[in-house]
């Protein structure tokens, strides 16, 4: 049974100067699935995510999520539609405690466009605090709740950022190499965590180099090389695809 397609990328083009980073990308993602995008370095994977969240404006083509066009919208509007992203280098609030790090996005979501909340007290925001503590438990950081986020290891920072995205209850979660720089142990913990989220029916697009991660999580895989999708399908099919092997070998040498 096919579920509904919820994310559409149609004919996306993006040039940097004379260089075509994305030449003609078409991608359709089913609701509630995990879609992995793999490809050699410089294939345009991060650029693709940047186009989705409004950090970059494509030169041509459009991105729609659940019938709403994302292209041309401001990042905060896209986030309010329900699209969240974990970045390649963790985007956290290094001077704040982990708890504050996770509570802040909840306030952003609640009072996004503008609500005067200067007369409220932080210490009375129990609902959001409880939720944030729950999320920190989910990502396995609850013991360090009061610690400064800047002091965390790289792997923990990534898990924290994931928590910051989860409290938004996104409908689409974009993950840019969520396990890069993690030890095998941490990688497996992150995989388990992402599997757990999967049961919540969130759609995920994940960029990853680590094939172990891709094959443990992805329902579908698309291969991006030199700015275009060259292959796609179930993970097993893609693994055997001759063009994919060439693209990877070509990129490596």
């Amino acid at each position: 049974m096919m579920s509904d397609l919820v994310l559409h990328l149609d004919n996306i083009q993006k040039n940097f100067g004379g260089l075509a980073a994305l030449s003609d990308v078409n991608l359709h993602v089913e609701e509630g699935t995990t879609h992995a995008i793999i490809g050699p370095n410089g294939a345009g994977k991060s650029t693709l995510l940047n186009v989705c969240i409004g950090r970059l404006k494509p030169d041509a083509g459009k991105v729609t999520f659940d019938g709403q066009e994302l292209t041309g919208r401001a990042p905060h509007e896209i986030a309010q539609i329900g699209v969240a992203r974990v970045f390649q280098t963790p985007e956290i609030f290094p001077e704040m405690s982990l708890l504050e790090n996770v509570m802040l996005p909840a306030f952003s979501k609640r009072d996004g466009s503008f609500a005067f909340n200067a007369h409220n007290m932080l210490s009375k925001q129990n609902e959001i605090r409880d939720e944030a503590e729950h999320i920190l438990e989910d990502v396995g950081l609850q013991e360090m709740m009061m610690q400064e986020a800047g002091s965390l290891s790289r792997g923990d920072k990534r898990r924290l950022e994931l928590g910051m995205c989860l409290i938004l209850r996104p409908r689409l979660l974009l993950l840019d190499e969520p396990t890069a720089g993690m030890s095998r142990h941490d990688t497996n913990r992150t995989i388990d965590l992402l599997k757990k989220i999967k049961s919540r029916g969130m759609t995920k697009v994940i960029i990853e180099h680590d094939m172990h991660v891709v094959f443990s999580l992805a329902d579908k895989v698309s291969v991006l090389a030199r700015g275009a999708i060259i292959a796609g399908g179930k993970p097993e099919e893609v693994r055997e695809d001759q063009r994919v092997k060439e693209a990877y070998l070509g990129g490596a040498h």
């Binding site: 986030a79 306030f107 995205c165």
Partner: peptide, 30 residues
């Protein structure tokens, strides 16, 4: 009171990482 309010925390968030604030859905300008 401002320092101890969600508003104050949001402002500190803007100082710390304005990108992250935007990508979590906050319109920072107002």
């Amino acid at each position: 009171r401002i320092f101890r309010s969600p508003f104050g925390l949001m402002l500190r968030g803007i100082k710390s990482n304005q990108n992250r604030m935007m990508y979590t859905g906050l319109n920072t300008r107002p």
